[in-house]
Design a protein around this nucleic acid. Structure first.
Lengths: 206, 206
DNA sequence: ACTTGATTACACCGATCTGTGTAATTATTG
DNA sequence: CAATAATTACACAGATCGGTGTAATCAAGT
């Protein structure tokens, strides 16, 4: 007797594929496994997705979520990114960036995967850049790129080390970069407050 | 007619497995493919490696190379890391960090893969840390971690974007972090003459 | 020449993979 | 109730996977 599931079948398939693809790897999870996990027949799955490739594409598209706009100060939003990261690192279900992982797994052959991964990374970079522009940073483009390096670097490091403190290290570095660009950073944000020596550096961006 | 190969069979297998595993992914490459690529029988391969898992382990162990000691100034060595990165990014054969990729691909299940990946990342961090200590940096540990974030971040970004300039962005950030820690950085390092886009930092630097 | 070890070809195993065909069964809806 | 759509079970195809068994062949050393 099929339980009365409110969520439509396609969504159930997607969220299950998402979880398994992300946690175990795309190549490591077969369609049979996904169908069995939901308790449906493989035929039903193929009635909703014509191929595994399309399911993979839908999985990645589903992961492409935009950060919701916030009314908090821009600098706080930027640094808050690393607090969010640390929270996600601390979850047992965190296994790195799904886009980077997908490219690492099948990027050499699959062009569409790389395409969406690039789009995702760029959207993150633009998000940083716009906040930096809001702060009057001159080289917002360059600094935004550098911040994404810290984000992806901490993700990669946490992936192999299982060490959520990598997010704090990234945050500390981000703070230095921001201050160097002339951004006034609120120091009492709850994180590592290593008394960095004064804002050295010749005056800068602003 | 077997060509007179000087390099012993085991090494030939290893270097072929290395190339294919790295470029196409570990799961994507079967032992048949490796044997066929060398032109040997699958039986010979299994005479040298009892299982694919052992071949994978040997592949990763082979990738675990220590940076050769240098007599150059420490700061130059540190920043030179990013120049090396940029050179490697520019190679068509670069496909990210083999350890991070391996963990992303099979780390969820395979404990030994994660172990060697952690050891590798830590060795890199220690290498940075010792150079920083040499420079008299107080928080050498923290700063070393931050530098590894920039390294891994630029690797991940280049993996998805195919943009070697990510190494220059990382280098620029590293320079700021070093200067913030009180390290005097030689500004006219002969490394990246501005080939593509603008100079590293605005005006001042070069 | 004889022995020893490495390599070969080749068949084969069981498991797993993506994907399909089909006919029966269930749900939904008019 | 009747018509339509969704889902089911299930068998199966064709490929590939990691791995083995075997007997013949090849190379080198003594």
């Amino acid at each position: 007797m099929p339980l009365p599931q409110k969520t439509p079948m396609k969504e159930r398939i997607l969220e299950t594929a998402d979880r398994l693809f992300y946690l175990r790897g795309i190549r490591a999870v077969g369609v049979d496994t996904i169908a069995a996990e939901i308790g449906i027949s493989k035929r039903t799955l193929y009635n909703h997705f014509p191929s595994k490739d399309e399911l993979i594409a839908a999985y990645l598209a589903r992961r492409f979520v935009q950060p919701r706009p916030s009314d908090k100060p821009a600098a706080e939003q930027i640094l808050g990114t690393f607090d969010s990261l640390e929270r996600r690192f601390s979850s047992r279900d965190f296994r790195g960036c799904p886009f980077v992982n997908a490219v690492a797994e099948l990027g050499a052959e699959d062009r569409s995967v790389k395409k969406i991964a690039i789009a995702f990374k760029e959207s993150r970079r633009v998000w940083f850049r716009d906040l930096l522009k809001q702060l009057g940073v001159a080289d917002a483009d360059d600094l935004a790129t550098q911040l994404t390096l810290l984000v992806d670097g901490s993700i990669a490091q946490d992936l192999v080390r299982d060490d959520p403190s990598m997010a704090r290290a990234a945050k500390a570095a981000a703070r230095v970069l921001l201050e160097n660009a002339g951004v006034e950073v609120d120091n009492n944000t709850p994180s590592s407050s290593p008394r960095k020596q004064g804002p050295i550096r010749r005056g800068g961006a602003v």
